[in-house]
Design a protein around this nucleic acid. Structure first.
Lengths: 226, 226
DNA sequence: GAGTGGTCTAGACCACGGG
DNA sequence: CCGTGGTCTAGACCACTCG
């Protein structure tokens, strides 16, 4: 009856009820284990979970304290566009607009830590939801990192999906920003509209794989739970 | 020498090297425990971690499979604006522009699941970085949920910080969108500029606490690692 | 029905870091 | 130094769910 989730809930309730106010130390694992009548490992599991969620600060010897600023974290999932569109109940389609081997512009080369004017694949594509523009994709792919990319049929599978399935990455980063329509390579909204852009770079170890900027149609939102 | 993190790394390496291709089943916990010469709990810790990161799909009886679409998750931390500004190396300041008790507009009432025209605190404030506008805050606070809010000195501590410290919330959600400058209650950029907005609602159990929309200055970006 | 992951235990040793 | 969290073990029972 008393699992680690129950203990987690109880501790969270005490934090929330200010029985253990922010900044104060809470009892040791051993003490809590005795109080709840469980093994220390069970308490550890509960407290570790709360620490990961940002509710507790734990340090060896210093003990466990209630976080002063409960830094809430939200997890943004980075889905494939096809999945995102179909999840919204629309029919998905995509259109490959261009695909060239071209020297990387300075900004792209810098973002990928490649020498200036390295030859990269440049892909421009449009993602559609019920035949209406959903997002414009502007992508640069490092051929050195993805040997098979030259032979990929990007008219059937979008570069987005192809890379997800064939080019595992170890890490990356992304940036969300707002931009005025009209600047990108593909017009997707009336000139002057405020659009959301997501720019992502991914790496395989130390080798840069791809840089991609998605410009979403007007009104698009990114949601997450806290 | 062989900890759960080592096992996690080894499994990840095999996934990455396609020794265990996407969609395929990997050996049972017991088998891996024997192979690595550790207890099953140690293997479990490693695999659970990989599953949480989206690399594996685990189900009782069905076993553990390499995820077909490694759904990468990024954790967005929701910092206090003061911390965000100072982290960027700027001096933080804020200015309370107005604070009224006013009937909630329909959109706000709906978002908080309150009856139309419920009386709420309406706060408008400006956050500054090195005396330049950083973000405009448009906030509605439910007085029923936060009794002490009427007495809070919001000129010293921003509503943002005051609520973080005095009004714990159990859950919430947020939405990122793009908007054209000029629509909000506070002009923060030249008319027509594309601005990033973050809208957040938070709850304490069933009671809605606050609705807030932050409109960031032109050029602001939200970053995260994958 | 039976195999698999999920969890718990009691005990142990270790690494870190505050005092 | 030495208390605290971090981790590992060997074994056990349970819950879920696939076949």
């Amino acid at each position: 009856m008393t699992g680690w989730q129950d203990i987690k809930a109880e501790v969270l309730a005490r934090i929330h009820a200010r029985a253990w106010p922010p900044g104060s130390a809470i009892p040791h694992e051993a003490a809590l284990a005795q109080e709840f009548g469980v093994a220390r490992a069970t308490v550890n599991r509960a407290l570790r979970s709360l620490a990961q969620a940002g509710w507790l600060d734990r340090r060896r010897k210093a003990g466990t304290r209630v976080a002063l600023h409960p830094v809430r974290k939200a997890t943004l999932s980075i889905p494939i566009l096809r999945a995102e569109v179909t999840a919204l109940g629309h029919a998905y389609a995509h259109r490959l607009l261009s695909r060239d081997l071209a020297p990387a512009p300075d900004a792209i080369a810098a973002a990928l830590a490649l020498p200036t004017a390295t030859m990269l694949w440049h892909i421009v594509a449009l993602h559609l939801a019920d035949d209406a523009p959903f997002a414009a994709e502007d992508r640069w792919v490092n051929p050195a990192a993805i040997p098979g990319f030259a032979d990929a049929d990007l008219t059937r599978t979008s570069a987005n999906e192809w890379l997800v399935q064939h080019a595992p990455f170890t890490h990356g980063d992304f940036t969300i920003a707002a931009a005025r329509a009209g600047a990108g390579p593909v017009p997707i909204a009336p000139c002057g509209a405020a659009l959301l852009t997501v720019t992502r770079t991914t790496w395989d170890g130390f080798r840069p794989i791809t840089w991609v900027r998605l410009t979403f149609a007007q009104g698009h939102q990114i949601r997450a739970a806290l």
